[in-house]
Simulated assay, not measured.
Amino acid sequence: MIHRGVILASVAVVALMGSGAVDAGARLDVPQDATPAPATVVDLLRQTPARPATPAPVESAPAGTPAPAAPVAVTPPPAVTVARVEDKAAPVVEPKPEPEPVVVSETLPKDDEPLVPARRQRRPVAVIQAIDKVTAETMRFEVEVGGQPVRFNNTLIFKVRACETSAPDELTDDAIAYVEVSLQPRGTLPGTDPRQIFRGWMFASSPAVNGLQHPVFDAWVVSCKA
């Protein structure tokens, strides 16, 4: 009997514990009701009734001077004279004299006087240089202006009509000669005229401009001499 009572008591305790656990789990899922938060110090101060303010003592106005029975004459203050300080005259700055323009005396030609270029100097002898491109024979020789013709390599005949040097007012120092070159091999039949292959001005400074250009011979002027 005792053992049976103990067993029943144990079963009852276990049943109560199980029902409590189920009840606690079910309560966790149900929303709780909101409860007011505990009052803070600020709320307590607000709830405390304010003490009535003590009225400030009222001061009595000071006794004023009684108004005069008769009007009092007021004397105006003396007029103040303000002395005006005249501005000092500004110093007069005299302008500096401008320098006089420097006049450079130049001898300029008059409008009615045309500029006359200097004349070239004529020379009586021309110096010619010729080359045979087949035999590579080259020679520098003199030809008298208007004088006897000169033969080169038994084939070319040179005649000079004029030979001049540059004037002092020209930019380039040059020698210019008017040359006539004819082709007549030595041993040609009598009465056969030479065949002219060049005629014109030759320039010593630019031999390639107007020199003798032949398949076999080249020639150009070198200088003019007295």
Rank of each mutant, 00 (worst) to 15 (best):
P99E: 04
P99D: 04
E100L: 10
P101K: 12
P101R: 11
P101T: 11
P101L: 11
V102T: 11
V102K: 14
V102D: 05
V102N: 09
V103C: 15
V104T: 07
S105T: 15
E106Q: 14
T107Y: 13
T107P: 03
T107Q: 11
T107K: 12
T107M: 07
L108S: 08
L108M: 12
L108C: 08
K110R: 10
K110F: 14
D111Y: 10
D111W: 08
D111E: 09
D112H: 09
D112V: 04
E113F: 10
E113M: 05
E113L: 07
P114D: 04
V116M: 12
V116N: 09
V116E: 13
V116Q: 13
P117E: 08
P117F: 07
P117M: 04
P117S: 07
P117G: 05
A118Q: 10
A118M: 07
A118T: 04
R120E: 04
R120Y: 02
Q121K: 05
Q121S: 06
R122P: 07
R123C: 05
R123N: 06
P124Y: 06
V125H: 07
V125K: 10
V125Q: 08
V125F: 08
V125A: 03
A126D: 09
A126Y: 08
V127K: 15
V127F: 14
I128C: 15
I128Q: 14
I128V: 15
I128F: 15
A130K: 07
A130C: 12
I131C: 12
I131K: 09
I131T: 14
K133E: 11
K133M: 14
V134Q: 10
V134T: 14
T135E: 15
T135R: 07
T138H: 04
T138M: 08
T138N: 07
T138S: 08
T138I: 10
M139G: 11
M139R: 12
M139A: 13
R140E: 11
R140D: 10
E142F: 13
E142C: 14
V143E: 13
V143N: 13
E144R: 09
E144G: 11
E144C: 03
V145S: 02
V145L: 02
V145R: 02
V145I: 06
G146Y: 06
G146F: 05
G146S: 07
G147L: 02
G147C: 04
Q148A: 09
V150C: 08
V150Y: 12
R151W: 04
R151V: 06
R151F: 05
F152L: 09
N154H: 04
N154E: 06
T155V: 03
L156C: 06
L156I: 09
L156T: 06
L156Q: 03
I157R: 03
F158C: 03
F158S: 04
K159E: 07
V160P: 01
V160L: 00
R161K: 05
R161V: 01
A162Q: 09
C163K: 01
E164R: 01
E164H: 02
T165H: 01
S166I: 00
S166N: 01
A167N: 00
A167E: 00
A167V: 01
A167I: 01
P168M: 00
D169M: 02
